[in-house]
Design a protein around this nucleic acid. Sequence first.
DNA 1: TCTTGTTCATGAGGGCCCTCATTAAATGGG
DNA 2: CCCATTTAATGAGGGCCCTCATGAACAAGA
Lengths: 143, 143
Amino acid sequence: MNKTDEEIIAEIGQLYTALRKRFDRVMSEHGASLAQTKMLVAIQAAAGMLRAADIADRFGIAPRTVTEALDALEREALIVRMPDLSDRRMKRLKITPAGEAAVSRTEPIRDQISHEIMEVLDPEERTSFANAVQKLLHCNQWT
Amino acid sequence: MNKTDEEIIAEIGQLYTALRKRFDRVMSEHGASLAQTKMLVAIQAAAGMLRAADIADRFGIAPRTVTEALDALEREALIVRMPDLSDRRMKRLKITPAGEAAVSRTEPIRDQISHEIMEVLDPEERTSFANAVQKLLHCNQWT
DNA sequence: TCTTGTTCATGAGGGCCCTCATTAAATGGG
DNA sequence: CCCATTTAATGAGGGCCCTCATGAACAAGA
């Protein structure tokens, strides 16, 4: 029997939840969750020059969401928010040694899990799946 | 250039967020959000016999999540929680007239949006995409 | 009957995402 | 130089999801 559009969409949601759950369970023991770690990596790479708004742009999420994630990272002492002397509206983000430690600790784990998740698809499936996701994403971006 | 596993997974997240945003924007004006409306439909179909735990099972989400959604639905007076006389631990869920009105008001909208989202894929793409999602979901369910 | 184990709903606390409103600061004309 | 606009970050309030802990009620064996 063929799936309805609604069923497929419901399954996308379930898939997202299942993946996040899997990542977070493993990674929560090592410092930061997946979304947080991705921000941490970006902050580290930018060497103290990144602003909250940059992260929002880069990951395509709302600025308010970034503030919230940074609150958590700062609470865990993985980053610090430094006031910018030349523009007092913004704060530059800097990773702490503890933050760098968390990044290097979780990097291999993230790779590993990502790979384990996707390897259930054979190469052709993987490619067409990636294309379909891209297509769906593209057509719903601006809507 | 080929996408990494991590990139594909990140895009699944973005897709989920974009879809939910699209649904919620339209549906929030009509009473209940997507997840809430799906629960409402189930509650309506069960004609007063459904428990919170049944919803958790049916949708594959945690009981605590259901409590939260039901709080919102009850706040909006779309459902009521009725104590069960034979087993005082549980509460039976009943849809209100306002709830039924919300369901019938949003039903065509949900169908419409679902269809608009999925129609960017041609039939073969749609099928292989659905299969891939299924496969990924299946292999990550228990993990 | 009296534990012990189970089930149900929920409190408490988080993560990740959103919109809208607000404050503070920078900036570009008049 | 001053005001209007724009930009940065965040407060307030929601939605959807999780785990772990709690309390009440039921079920069943000793």
